[in-house]
Deep mutational scan, measured.
Amino acid sequence: MEQATVKWFNAEKGFGFIERENGDDVFVHFSAIQGDGFKSLDEGQAVTFDVEEGQRGPQAANVQKA
Rank of each mutant, 00 (worst) to 15 (best):
M1P: 13
M1N: 12
M1G: 13
M1I: 12
M1D: 08
M1A: 14
M1Q: 14
E2W: 13
E2G: 10
E2N: 12
E2H: 14
E2Y: 15
E2M: 13
E2S: 11
E2P: 09
E2K: 10
E2R: 10
Q3K: 14
Q3Y: 14
Q3A: 12
Q3V: 14
Q3N: 11
Q3D: 06
A4D: 01
A4R: 03
A4T: 04
A4S: 09
A4I: 02
A4N: 03
A4L: 02
T5W: 14
T5P: 02
T5Q: 08
T5I: 13
T5Y: 14
T5C: 14
T5E: 05
T5F: 13
T5K: 14
V6I: 09
V6Q: 01
V6F: 00
K7G: 03
K7F: 02
K7Q: 03
K7P: 03
K7L: 03
K7W: 00
K7V: 05
W8L: 00
W8M: 02
W8N: 04
W8H: 02
W8F: 07
F9W: 15
F9C: 06
F9T: 01
F9K: 02
F9S: 03
F9Q: 05
F9D: 04
N10A: 05
N10F: 05
N10S: 12
N10W: 08
N10C: 12
N10T: 03
N10D: 13
N10P: 05
N10H: 07
A11W: 10
A11D: 09
A11S: 12
A11E: 09
A11K: 15
A11N: 11
A11I: 12
A11L: 09
A11F: 08
E12Q: 13
E12R: 12
E12C: 15
E12L: 13
E12G: 09
E12M: 12
K13L: 14
K13F: 11
K13I: 10
K13G: 04
G14I: 03
G14A: 03
G14H: 02
G14R: 00
G14Y: 01
G14E: 02
G14C: 07
G14V: 02
F15N: 01
F15L: 04
F15R: 00
F15V: 05
F15C: 06
F15T: 02
F15E: 03
G16K: 00
G16Y: 01
G16C: 07
F17H: 01
F17D: 00
F17Y: 06
F17G: 01
I18W: 01
I18P: 02
I18N: 01
I18L: 15
I18V: 05
I18R: 00
E19F: 12
E19N: 10
E19P: 00
E19C: 15
E19G: 11
E19H: 14
E19Q: 15
R20Y: 05
R20T: 08
R20A: 05
R20L: 09
E21W: 11
E21F: 12
E21H: 12
E21T: 12
E21R: 12
E21P: 13
N22R: 09
N22A: 09
N22G: 11
N22H: 11
N22V: 10
G23E: 08
G23Q: 09
G23P: 02
G23V: 03
G23N: 07
G23L: 08
G23Y: 07
D24W: 08
D24V: 13
D24A: 13
D24L: 12
D24G: 11
D24F: 10
D24C: 12
D24H: 11
V26A: 00
V26L: 15
V26F: 05
V26M: 08
V26T: 05
V26W: 05
V26H: 00
V26K: 01
V26I: 13
V26P: 02
V26S: 01
F27I: 02
F27H: 02
F27A: 00
F27C: 07
F27W: 04
F27E: 04
F27P: 00
F27R: 00
F27V: 01
V28Y: 04
V28L: 08
V28I: 08
V28R: 00
H29A: 03
H29G: 02
H29E: 04
H29C: 08
H29I: 04
F30M: 08
F30Q: 07
F30L: 06
F30N: 06
F30K: 08
F30G: 05
F30V: 09
S31H: 06
S31W: 06
S31K: 07
A32L: 00
A32V: 07
A32S: 09
A32Q: 09
A32D: 09
A32C: 07
A32G: 08
I33D: 04
I33S: 02
I33V: 07
I33K: 00
I33C: 06
Q34Y: 09
Q34G: 07
Q34D: 08
Q34W: 10
Q34V: 14
G35H: 09
G35W: 09
G35P: 01
G35D: 08
G35S: 09
D36P: 12
D36K: 12
D36E: 13
D36T: 13
D36M: 11
D36V: 11
G37I: 06
G37P: 05
G37D: 07
G37E: 07
G37Y: 07
G37K: 05
F38T: 07
F38P: 10
F38Q: 07
F38K: 08
F38D: 07
K39V: 07
K39R: 12
K39E: 06
K39I: 07
K39N: 06
S40V: 11
S40F: 13
S40G: 08
S40C: 15
S40Q: 10
S40A: 09
L41P: 02
L41D: 00
L41W: 03
L41Q: 01
D42A: 14
D42M: 15
D42K: 15
D42W: 14
D42N: 13
D42H: 15
D42I: 15
D42E: 14
D42Y: 15
D42T: 15
D42C: 15
E43W: 13
E43N: 13
E43H: 15
E43D: 10
E43P: 15
E43Y: 13
E43S: 15
G44K: 06
G44T: 02
G44Y: 05
G44L: 02
G44Q: 04
G44I: 01
G44R: 06
Q45W: 10
Q45I: 09
Q45M: 12
Q45H: 09
Q45A: 09
A46T: 13
A46C: 15
A46K: 14
A46S: 12
A46E: 11
A46W: 15
V47M: 02
V47N: 02
V47I: 08
V47L: 04
V47E: 02
V47F: 00
V47C: 04
V47Y: 01
T48M: 11
T48D: 05
T48K: 09
T48P: 01
T48H: 09
F49W: 00
F49I: 06
F49Q: 02
F49R: 03
F49H: 03
F49S: 03
D50N: 14
D50G: 08
D50C: 13
D50P: 01
V51A: 05
V51H: 04
V51I: 14
V51C: 08
V51T: 07
V51Y: 09
E52N: 08
E52S: 10
E52M: 12
E52I: 15
E53W: 15
E53D: 11
E53G: 07
E53T: 11
E53A: 10
E53C: 14
E53V: 13
E53I: 15
E53Y: 15
G54H: 07
G54M: 07
G54T: 13
G54L: 06
Q55D: 11
Q55C: 15
Q55M: 13
Q55R: 15
Q55G: 10
R56H: 12
R56W: 15
R56V: 07
R56I: 07
R56Q: 09
R56F: 14
R56A: 09
R56N: 11
G57W: 05
G57A: 03
G57M: 04
G57I: 03
G57D: 01
G57K: 04
G57L: 04
P58V: 10
P58I: 11
P58G: 04
P58E: 06
P58C: 08
P58R: 10
P58S: 08
P58M: 10
Q59T: 07
Q59V: 10
Q59S: 07
Q59D: 02
Q59R: 12
Q59C: 06
Q59Y: 12
A60P: 02
A60K: 00
A60H: 02
A60V: 03
A60M: 02
A60G: 04
A60E: 00
A61H: 09
A61R: 13
A61W: 04
A61G: 08
A61K: 13
A61T: 13
N62Q: 05
N62S: 06
N62R: 10
N62V: 04
N62W: 05
V63G: 01
V63S: 01
V63W: 00
V63F: 00
V63L: 05
V63I: 06
V63M: 00
V63K: 01
Q64Y: 09
Q64E: 09
Q64D: 05
Q64K: 12
Q64T: 11
Q64M: 10
Q64L: 09
Q64C: 08
Q64F: 08
Q64S: 11
K65H: 09
K65T: 10
K65Q: 09
K65S: 09
K65W: 08
K65N: 08
A66C: 13
A66I: 15
A66H: 12
A66D: 09
A66R: 12
A66G: 10
A66M: 15
A66K: 12
A66E: 10
A66Q: 12
A66Y: 11
